[in-house]
Amino acid sequence: MAKIPLHFILNGEERAEFVDSGATLLRLLRDKTGDLTAKSGCLQGTCGTCTVLVDGAPRLSCITLAEDCDGADVETVAGLAAHGQLHPLQHAVMEHFAAQCGFCTPGMLMAAKALFLTNPRPSREDVVEALSGNICRCTGYEPIIQAVLSAAQVMSASGPGAA
């Protein structure tokens, strides 16, 4: 099968890979780049555990074609902590005990980060809407909602552009 060359940015670093036609972004990330932070929960775009940012927008990487990401800027949880400092969202999830098994956590974090990029001061309803494509089976969601709201407060206190 012909391989398709891809050139993209992953968490700020330039990458070049060859992928099979039809391969998903999730497979590209996990099998080719070694970034295992995006999880595979359903492979059909229903659980949100594979959520990453593509050019700043949340994408379900399990149903995003890798070949469509040529030239794209891809962000995963691996890039969330900048210069060794945890992102406020990561702090908040810890602080609010908002992770149990941890499998949905990377997707939740990326969905929340995508929200902050367009809406730095989200209401509870905004947060609920942003997380509604992400399934958590452990927490009952409330701690996650609280964590995201609290991170938004921290970030808006530390000024614009913090996301």
């Binding site: 099998d31 070694g34 595979s40 945890l86 990561q90 999830v93 810890m94 992770a99 941890g102 956590t105």
Partner: peptide
């Protein structure tokens, strides 16, 4: 918790 928020908690499929 730290592993969870960094996405590095090693689930069974998380090995290249």
């Amino acid at each position: 918790a730290l592993g969870h928020v960094k996405g590095i908690t090693p689930f069974y499929a998380d090995r290249a």
